[in-house]
Nucleic acid binder design. Structure first.
Length: 477
RNA sequence: GUCCCCUUCGUCUAGCCCGGUCUAGGACACCUCCCUUUCACGGAGGUAACGGGGGUUCGAAUCCCCCAGGGGACGCCA
């Protein structure tokens, strides 16, 4: 049996941490089992479609390289892969279902249904359809259908509980009495998600349905559809939901947690994928230390039965760590491509500059902190002022500058020259350690912390280093 | 309100199905030390958890029951 999984987003939103993780798990499972991953656009409700949403999903999924084998853009043997292009199929299947189960027209207005629900709620009863239209005769219903709007409902008779054997949650069951007769298609004739989704999963031969836990209660109704229509019920896997860092709902912060946003903030796909895979799943003992996994490794290791049941809270710190780990695997050329110099004057030295700060950066964006060292240092800050105006700072810098000029005049290499100049200056004045190096560091960069001084000086060039030392001496004076 | 699901370090988790090997392991973060002219990287340590209460058992994080807390669903949304 070839495993087939799918990701079926509604084109009303965008790819965010929550649905990206769902897509990832479905994708990884298909890959781990040598199966196929399918993209289906769930656009049954035309009113909710947001322009550009589908394209945005496709772009972000492609960026993450969660590549699909069948989908709306590339087609496939069991298409179409967009719900809006499958209305004739839903119509046909609804007609078929009508002959297999008690499916009836419901003429209740939204207002009536709303009142029913309020009453039920006040009576502390299960909120479900009251069955008002169930008793309308077929003849009457047909007659009224000519002039009144109606929806199709499927009747759920009492009986044995509906059960699901979930890959993650195990055995789950629901009493039929609490399910209620549910809507299959709207007054407009368009099927609702519950029905269309089940039809699509069946006809597109999905073997595994991987989705969020928020769908769990829908699943009982869909199982009823699968069973009465003679479809093969897929294996379900309901993923735990992801919560925000503060323990609240992720949706509150959805705006800042879009995959697109993370990408713009400088997270790379390997880091995001690695982090997301660990949100609710763990590989168990892999025989190696650490939790860094490349996408290719995940495609081998992943399995649904190792998904955790409890919900996970999103944590930027771990994302940062893993992103940094994966950035370490990138070559300087790749880093430069991801973070090109913003100032064209820095282009010739940019790669060397990135090399100085690459291990310091959690994200691609953080690489740009090297700009701070390439640009003119600011001595006006409290710390810089304090260090430059300290007791022997000015003298140390003057001595150092003197040695450096001499060294450069003799055409010695800047790296060696600067190092010796600082040391000689220290010897002359009896300075060492931070008292000696901090004035030079601050003179050249403006701050006490940063990349190694000598390599940085090499990038800046002798003339620039001399210039900065002179400026610092002037400031100190 | 009703139904369903969940609950191990601050966070992500291993272990749970098949009770003892768990004085509960790993990762992130944090702290300490080493490396180092600084920060970081890297290396070595450390602090830190089985939601509560009953049972079953010689023995329970692991099995059973109750409670509490959290989440989800209850739409002519998906």
């Amino acid at each position: 049996m070839v495993v087939r999984t799918r990701f079926a987003p509604s084109p009303s939103g965008f790819l965010h941490l929550g649905n990206a993780r769902t897509a990832l798990f479905a994708f990884l499972y298909a890959r781990a089992k040598g199966g196929r991953f399918i993209l289906r656009i769930e656009d049954t409700d035309q009113e909710r479609i947001v322009a550009g949403s589908e394209a945005s999903f496709i772009e972000d999924l492609k960026w993450l390289q969660l590549t699909w084998d069948e989908g709306p853009d590339i087609g496939g043997p069991l298409g179409p892969y967009r719900c809006s292009e499958r209305y004739d199929i839903y119509e046909r299947e609804l007609k078929r279902l009508t002959k297999l189960a008690r499916v009836y027209r419901c003429f209740c207005t939204p207002d009536q249904l709303d009142q029913d629900r309020k009453l039920l709620s006040s009576q502390k009863k299960v909120i479900k359809y009251v069955g008002r239209c169930l008793s309308i005769s077929e003849a009457d219903a047909t007659k009224r259908a000519a002039t009144e709007p109606f929806v199709w409902r499927m009747h759920v008779p009492d009986g044995a509980p509906v059960t699901i054997e979930d890959s993650i949650r195990g055995h789950v069951e629901m009493q039929r009495e609490v399910i209620g007769d549910f809507v299959l298609s709207r007054a407009s004739g368009v099927p609702v998600f519950l029905f269309a989704n089940a039809v699509d999963d069946a006809l597109q031969e999905m073997t595994h349905v991987v989705r969020g836990e928020d769908h769990l209660s829908n699943t009982f109704r869909q199982v009823l559809i699968f069973q009465t229509m003679g479809y093969k019920t897929p294996q379900f896997a309901h993923l735990p939901l992801i919560g925000a860092e503060d323990g609240g709902k992720l949706s509150k912060r959805e705006g800042s947690l879009g995959i697109r946003d993370l990408r713009e903030q400088g997270y790379i796909r390997e880091g995001i994928l690695n982090y997301l895979s660990l949100l609710g799943w763990s590989p168990g003992d892999t025989g190696k230390t650490g939790e860094k996994f490349k996408p290719e490794e995940l495609m081998k290791l992943f399995d649904l039965d190792r998904v955790h049941k409890g919900r996970a809270l999103f944590d930027f710190q771990k994302l940062n760590f893993l992103n940094q780990q994966h950035m370490n695997d990138l070559s300087l050329a790749e880093l430069e491509r991801l973070a090109p110099p913003k100032n064209s004057a820095w282009a010739p030295i940019w790669k060397d500059a990135l090399a100085l700060v690459r291990h310091d950066a959690h994200t691609v964006q953080e690489l740009y902190k090297v700009e701070k060292f390439l640009g003119q240092p600011d001595y006006q800050t409290d710390n810089a002022t304090k260090i430059l105006k300290a007791d022997k700072s000015k003298q140390a810098l003057e001595k150092g500058l003197q040695y450096l000029k001499q060294s450069l005049g003799e055409n010695k290499a800047l790296e060696e020259g600067l190092k010796q100049s600082i040391q000689s200056s220290g010897k002359d004045l009896g300075l060492k350690g931070k008292d000696l190096y901090f004035p030079f560091r601050v003179a050249i960069t403006g701050v006490e912390a940063g990349p190694e001084l000598v390599p940085l000086a090499k990038i800046l060039g002798g003339q620039e280093v001399v210039h900065r030392l002179e400026r610092a001496i002037q400031f100190a004076g």
